[in-house]
Design a protein around this nucleic acid. Structure first.
Lengths: 156, 156
DNA sequence: TTTGACAATTTAACTTGTTAACTTTATGCT
DNA sequence: AGCATAAAGTTAACAAGTTAAATTGTCAAA
């Protein structure tokens, strides 16, 4: 059996934790979770607002999580929601003025921390890492389509 | 502001999700969460058993999560706990016979999926990815020590 | 127009992540 | 010995991840 240490999910998790540790104190100082910040950032880039499902995709959050997060952010008046005219089922979420100000207030510090990581790790390596991660996802998802896993016959 | 897409934590998360998707059906078929599996795997490699805190480190789980997971696995008779003689505060967790059998039953399929990922992505790239991830963690943690973050003065 | 399938979200229920508070046992100092 | 302090785990409380079921709105065909 492969040694326990070489676990890809765990290596990815550890790397993620190490990176997040650089951002979390800043977020916490403004009472935001990483997920809440992702939502605000995504909305900042889409001034017209986004439907829940679009937001869910961009922030890589499942709908139930997003639903709760939006309730929280709406209660804090950082975002607002309105119902789409074209389809009453859709809410359209957009940044409230206060939310916009918050993003603008926090962005410089956030960028600075990104810059710090880039410096420490090296620009080239960071780019390489992004490429490898993207390619890994791509290849795994391609493999998804092809042969629907053989193992299910045995196990499910 | 940097484009929202290039977010290192999110890229790492996506990669992790893509990888996990390959393993989760197999785990679910045996009623195990990824965390529970990590614990069983770690214990399999330490037949003498491990203290909670050692297990916590190896599985990269915080104590409260681990505590609950062990309660669950113990109830299912997959692991057992005894109190250390040298220090009454420490529990020592080890695999129950049934847990050992389960690991041995599941390992081949798990290895096969690993092999599949290696093939699809390429052995060299996978090794490179591991190295980059390790180095990233290392560099970020080194940076931790040096200059205790300047930002705290402003924000906390 | 009504039924029936489908789509967008929310709710529910349960597990895990996370921080802080608490319990019990060791250890070190005086 | 006697007391403060630290260490190992657990418990508590709440946010977030995850799956399934429920809710509400849309759309097309009978």
């Amino acid at each position: 059996m492969r040694t326990f240490e070489r676990s890809l999910p765990m290596s990815l998790l550890k790397a993620r934790e190490a990176v997040m540790k650089k951002f979390i104190p800043h977020l916490r100082a403004h009472d935001l979770s990483p997920q809440q910040w992702r939502v605000l950032r995504a909305l900042y880039d889409s001034p017209a607002g986004l439907e829940m499902s679009a937001l869910s995709e961009r922030c890589f959050l499942l709908m139930p999580s997003l639903s709760r997060i939006i309730q929280n952010l709406a209660a804090r008046e950082l975002v607002m929601r309105r119902i789409a005219e074209h389809d009453q089922r859709c809410s359209i979420i957009s940044l409230h003025a206060q939310g916009r100000r918050l993003v603008e207030l926090m962005a410089p510090e956030s960028e600075a921390r990104y810059a710090h990581i880039t410096t420490v790790f090296g620009y080239g390596k960071l780019e390489l890492l992004y490429e490898l991660l993207d390619e890994l996802v791509e290849k795994l998802e391609a493999a998804e389509q092809e042969h629907h896993p053989s193992s299910h016959e045995l196990l499910d």
